[in-house]
Design a protein around this nucleic acid. Structure first.
Lengths: 128, 128
DNA sequence: ATACATGCAAACACTTTGCAGCACA
DNA sequence: TGTGCTGCAAAGTGTTTGCATGTAT
């Protein structure tokens, strides 16, 4: 495995994900970083987001509105997705680990992860 | 709302989803239907799959390998996704409803659905 | 007869990749 | 100094859409 370098772009992208607390998409992260580093390319943003996810610096939140979102918060938690506006909110669900042990999966399947996504309508959209 | 018609294509697509029990993608459903109806177009397959999902005839399973998968089995259940081969397996997880009620979501968020996807490696891939 | 549906191709959104030049270690 | 990284453009993947024609009701 190769050694990863500290480039200006990479640290700017990480800093951006950490500063945007609303689960931004790659596009939003790009639009924010390009303000401070006008020549940055979208490919660099995508490449670095993937790298940072691999290194465990950020989390990827896959949602059904197409684009992946990214999360600076590393503690185990879940998400609620508003299908009206596409926003993502944090959710806690205690006792999931207990429950996972009781889950009946396919024979000899090695369970590694459990992705939970709640869907519904957020309070802002309910008011409209 | 408009009335839905019974076309040959639509019933062939539904029949195909019901006959393929391995959570096929739109592409796989297309490849199967085109055998019996050579002029069918992929757009028709996509349009009908979406319609059948809307009508509650089949389920859509969104997974992170890109393509959506489809499920003929309507009872509430979950899925395990093998990230080595992309296969999907059925899973049961009792007591989820209980747990969902204890979940702490964002204020005034109207929870409608909960999508759970387990990830890991299936038995076939573990043997390789 | 009249909508709805089809087939085709083009458009679409998001993401990845090939490549030549650049820059961190 | 050398390999990893960047910017750019192009390609790739999965899905949707516009439109003229076809067909179920």
């Amino acid at each position: 495995m190769s050694i990863s370098r500290n480039t200006i772009q990479r640290s700017l992208i990480l800093q951006t994900v950490r500063s945007l607390h609303h689960h931004p998409t790659a596009e939003e992260i790009y639009r924010e970083t390009v303000k401070y580093h006008p020549n940055i390319s979208k490919a660099t943003v995508y490449r670095n987001l993937n790298l940072l996810v691999q290194q465990g610096e950020i989390l990827k939140v896959e949602v059904p509105d197409g684009a992946d979102h990214f999360d600076f918060k590393l503690q185990y938690h879940h998400h609620a997705y508003c299908h009206k506006c596409g926003s993502i909110y944090d959710m806690e669900m205690p006792a999931l680990e207990d429950m996972m042990e009781r889950a009946k999966g396919p024979q000899d399947f090695l369970l590694e992860e459990c992705n939970i996504l709640f869907r519904g309508v957020c309070s802002k959209c309910r008011q409209k």
